[in-house]
Amino acid sequence: MSESTVARSDLADPATRQALMAGVDATPGSAKPDSILVVDNIVRQFGGITAVDVSHLEVQRGIITALIGPNGAGKTTFFNLITGFDKPSSAKTGAHWSFDGATLDKTSASSVAKAGMVRTFQLTKALSRMTVMDNMMLGAQGQAGENLLKCVFKPLWSGQEKAIEEKAKELLQRFKLLEKKDDYAGSLSGGQRKLLEMARALMSDPKMIMLDEPMAGVNPALTQSLLGHIQSLRDDGTTVLFVEHDMHVVRHISDWVAVMAEGRLVAEGPADTVMSDTAVIDAYLGAHHDTDLGDDALLSDQAMVEIQQEVAAEQAEREEEA
């Protein structure tokens, strides 16, 4: 099935989306009417620990799919694997995934992005010591001026450069960053950086955008506008897959939810269905069984300590990479 059966503009209408997904089984790994991303048998181990072990997952074109799960469920690792930033341990034993019909098993991260699947990072990778505008300009594909042989001759690329700049300005306008275009990206707030990263990803007109915890570290005022942006992306016809652990967010904007726990895909379905699934509650909450999902009271002292430790670990990882 392709775009002809479900016109993109139709998907801006919630009823159409519901109707589209109504026929899909709410079981892990269920088939979708029009999958843009299909993942099979992808396993990643670190030392002896299995971080990701997903046997089958399909992502429907044109809607917002949320990938949720407790910390350490392997969501980010899964993202890294399918975007080429990491190699599955099962590379030689049947790992297979394809995007929009093209196989991605051995594709490098940059080629994945070129194919139209662009991602953002949980810890934003805004290029701090470059201006917001430069950040945006880097997002555009197929620039003649990025060719070493052509780059010294300005006339060969100045026209394209202007066009790209116009496009960047439009996007910045949309994300309300235009007035900051000459500022260093490092001077933006956490939320603005998330917006910038998203806008930068859109410079290449991706078919699918993959957002890794877009709401993490963003102040509440910006969260709403971020959500709005994500929804408008969908309404413009871009497929969205995002990782999140904040249940409120997921419930409000996602058309479909996939749940990961301990590296496996444990549930799939519309947000409401998934959140009442006992398997999800078990996997997701463990000891906090009796609490309501998406309740802030969830953040008990112990949970806070755990989260802090995870944050410390991530921090360390980031430093290691630096």
Binding site: A109, K125, A126, R129, M130, D134, L138, G139
Partner: peptide, 18 residues
Amino acid sequence: RLLRGIREDEDAIRSLGK
């Protein structure tokens, strides 16, 4: 510009299809 981008963060540039 690409060079400076790589200096800042290789993975970010990679994720932009370069």
